[in-house]
């Protein structure tokens, strides 16, 4: 179903969910939960947004049943650790590539996806100051390196 323009700011979280559907269903589940909660704050009034959010809720409830025996879904504290570990693993991979002077699409995507997953962590509560800094740095680096490569410049 097409994403209504009012819900544009959750499109990358939903795409990350799709990318992880098979690879890591727990990540997919929490990306969709974050998108659901954020979407309801953005706009649950206009008919097309409500329709989209109802479909997303259907998907979440189905996933919940499919993952019923997974601790990361039934216990928030386990889910929180799962997402945080995954986000930081992606961040460290990208940061290592950056420090080694290896700039490429994969590392840009890893920086950006780690920043999206740090957004998702907010479903478990306030982000730590460290995670807020990581998210800011990761998003800035992804944008900076992407623009350098696009303009044929060498990132510093």
């Amino acid at each position: 179903m097409a994403l209504p323009p009012q819900l544009k700011s959750i499109q990358h979280h939903l795409r990350t969910a799709q990318e992880h559907e098979k690879r890591d269903p727990v990540v997919a589940y929490y990306c969709r939960l974050y998108a659901m909660q954020t979407g309801m704050k953005l706009d649950s009034k206009t008919p097309e947004c409500r329709k989209f959010l109802v479909k997303l809720m259907d998907q979440l409830e189905t996933m919940k049943k499919e993952l019923a025996d997974n601790d990361s879904i039934t216990q928030e504290v386990v889910g929180n650790a799962h997402i945080e570990n995954y986000a930081l693993k992606m961040f460290l991979y990208a940061d290592n590539e950056d420090r080694s002077g290896r700039f490429h699409k994969n590392m840009i995507k890893s920086f950006y996806t780690s920043s999206l997953l740090l957004d998702v962590l907010s479903v478990f509560g306030e982000l730590s100051e460290e995670n807020i800094q990581h998210r800011k740095y990761a998003r800035w680096k992804a944008t900076y390196i992407h623009n350098c490569l696009k303009n044929g410049e060498n990132p510093q």
Binding site: L33, M36, Q37, M40, S44, K45, P47, R50, L53, V54, M57, L60, E61, K64, I73, T74, Q75, E76, G79
Partner: peptide
Amino acid sequence: TGSVGTSVASAEQDELSSRLAKLRDQM
């Protein structure tokens, strides 16, 4: 129709909120 539409919308919103709360409660 305006008021009917609005009440349908808010009923659906309430339903979404309660489904979300239920989804999270079971975590």
